[in-house]
Amino acid sequence: MEERLLEIKDLHVEYVTDEARVFAVNGLDLTVNRGETVGLVGETGAGKTTTALSVMRLLPDLVGRITRGSIILDGIDITRATEADMRLIRGEAVSMIFQDPMTSLNPVMTIGEQIAEVLHLHEKYDTKEEVEHRVDEILRLVGLPPERKGEYPHQFSGGMKQRVVIAIALACEPKLLLADEPTTALDVTIQAQVLQMVRELKEKLNTAMLLITHDLGVVAQTCDRVGIMYAGEIVELGTAEQIFQKDERHHPYTVGLFGSIPDLTRKTRRLSPIEGLMPDPTDLPPGCRFHTRCPHRMPVCEVESPRPSYNGGHLIRCHIWDDRRCSQ
């Protein structure tokens, strides 16, 4: 059952502009198995969206590029595929739900046209009637009345637009769905609805999902495994249970993240957010990227990059938990 669908190895992504060179992703390893949901959690600027765009190979032209590593999707290396191959893969094998539904839909095309388009591009059906039939079906699936397919995006609310975006993403029943903060731009009440729908559809279609978010609550409800990202690296990776288990070993950054959300079961006067800011991605600190903000900083952290240590599939990249170092 544990068959790997997506395997990202040692991924490095850079953005190069006139002014600076931004190291967005720095040696990321991640796998997603068939049908599994993996959460990717981290602050803004950690490189989560960049990772997802790399899998789609939709990094901004001229600026963003993959400098090292491989992304194997269902046996094909995305980093080496031709643009023509990528066109077949996008929308069919892997699709993406973008952050902001308000701007993700073309304002001058009806939503029906926009859903039908992905079916046309992948030549899913032979006749127009079949395509239209499928569009109706998908609209019903995401909870929108098919009669409204002739309307334009501006005639829909934010939550409904996100349903359209999801309908487009799922139209070809992809093996992998990249969901980039699919609920961040929505009202709280709508968030729950949309999330519930995504979960159900995923089950129904047996789609694997990489869910990008900075909302730990969403992760707890949805994900099988969770990766914590910081400055372009995964600092901790484990099953949801492992990550959310308070008395387990954790990366200090993960501890900090949990410290920054209110806990209703305990009486705390104030939240304890992580001090400081993300390091400047154009000028990353040497050694452990987190050492500038880490409460448990050791001299070694400033010079040497920590190796990952494993504990029953639970990965932590921190000198404190490096057993080899402890035994020395």
Partner: peptide
């Protein structure tokens, strides 16, 4: 614009 990215993500 984002919708251009959406279109590319469809495989166009």
């Amino acid at each position: 614009q984002d919708y251009i990215r959406t279109a590319k993500a469809k495989g166009a």
